[in-house]
Each structure stands twice: as structure tokens, then as C-alpha cells.
Design a binder for these strands. Sequence first.
DNA 1: GCGTTCCTATCGATAGACGATGGGAAGGAT
DNA 2: ATCCTTCCCATCGTCTATCGATAGGAACGC
Lengths: 109, 109
Amino acid sequence: MKTAAELLPGTLDLIVLRTLVRGPMHGYGIAQRVKEISKDVLHVGESSLYPALQRLLLDGYVKAEWGASENNRRARFYTLTAAGRRQLASEREEFERIVGAIHAVLRFA
Amino acid sequence: MKTAAELLPGTLDLIVLRTLVRGPMHGYGIAQRVKEISKDVLHVGESSLYPALQRLLLDGYVKAEWGASENNRRARFYTLTAAGRRQLASEREEFERIVGAIHAVLRFA
DNA sequence: GCGTTCCTATCGATAGACGATGGGAAGGAT
DNA sequence: ATCCTTCCCATCGTCTATCGATAGGAACGC
């Protein structure tokens, strides 16, 4: 089973960013949600996710604060920043551009 | 400018395989063709392409033989094998599966 | 002869994802 | 009380693939 970004690295940030549009979430929740929405096709492993979140923090695309989860566990909630939204739009566009180009090749090459 | 597989590694083999469906081509030609068909969005660098071709050779997905190019240069022509066609079908399917899942996330997440 | 296009190929550095691993707290079951 | 499962965070080392730089040679037009 290919895990999400094993086939398409570089899309992890995009996916994480997009997932946060609905509101703040903790890492574990992000992983669950992606798995659910993609109907088990995309698996965001924790060892891929946390480094990605660190990256996004460093780049200022998300901010984080500690709190309590729905299940009353200690959890770190990540929130999209304004810069994060811009980055999301940009990455999304780029993604479609590339995928479109690949589809063109798959059709006509 | 993001180059093709810089955003989407793992797709290089797929692209190369697909390009060879039309018939045998040499490496340089493959690079040109992809660039052309993708309207300059996908750049298959030579330092990415030749290793990829070596991989495909080793895996038996293509075979190669030396010959003369259209311009009368010494060139190595790569041809898709039966296994290569199967691999292409498989990779294509997988690609669509993943892209579909990502699109689902981009819509609903 | 000289530059340009064509064509092949390798090397070292880099980046990103993954599996394995470790830890800890909450809550229910026995 | 203790155990087990689920939840939640995080890092480390490995691995794989791409990339930029680099190298070289043959054909052709000028």
C-alpha cells in the first residue's frame, strides 16, 4: 500500500494546510481526518506529520498552542495563519498545474 | 519554477513509460517531448532521466539498443516491454487513485 | 577550424517520507 | 489497585529519488 506522499511527496504540506481550514486541530486529529476523508487511501504517518508541522511552524504557516482535546488529553492545536492561507492557495494552484500537465502527457504523449 | 517530479516524485517513471507507448525513443527525445506536451510545465532533467531509465532497464520495463537518431547521432533507443506496459497500467491506476484522494481532501477536508 | 546542437552519463549533495521507537496521560474493565 | 487500550506527542536513523554541476563526444553548418 502506497502511503499518500510516498507517491507524491511535496503534497503533505498541502494536505495538512487544507485540513486546518476548518479550524484548529491537533496532529492526531489531522491524521485521522485525512485517512477518513480519503477513504483510507491517504495515510499520514505520525513520523511524517510531526516533522511537517514543525516545518509549517517555522515557516509561519501555522501557529500552535497547547490545550485539551475532546477526550481530555493534552494536545497541541495547530491553527492556520494568514500566511498559511496564502501558501495553501499557492500550493494548491501549483498542484493543479502539475497534475494537469501530467494528465496531458498521459493523454497525448 | 518547480520541475515536474520535484513536486511529484514517483511520477517520473510513469511519465517516461507513457512517452514510450508511441514507439522507441532516445533519452534526449523523451525529455524534449515531455517538455513540449506539458507546455513547459514538466522539465525532465537529464540527471533525473538517465537514472530513471537505468532503473526501468533493470526492472525489465524497457529494453535498449544503440542506433542512429534522426539527426544521425549515436543514440540509445528505449522500447517498452510487455512488463513495461503492465507496469504503466498499474502506475497509472495508482496515480489516479492518489490524485483522486487528494482532490477529495482539497474539497471536503 | 569553430561553435552549436544533439546525446549519453555519473557524482555528490539534498530533501522528504518512512519504520521503529519511546514516552506519557486518561478512562474503562477486571 | 492494576491492566489495557486508546489517544497524543515527538525524534532518530535510514532510504530513495531528484537535482545541479560536471564531463565528454560526435555531427553539422559556417
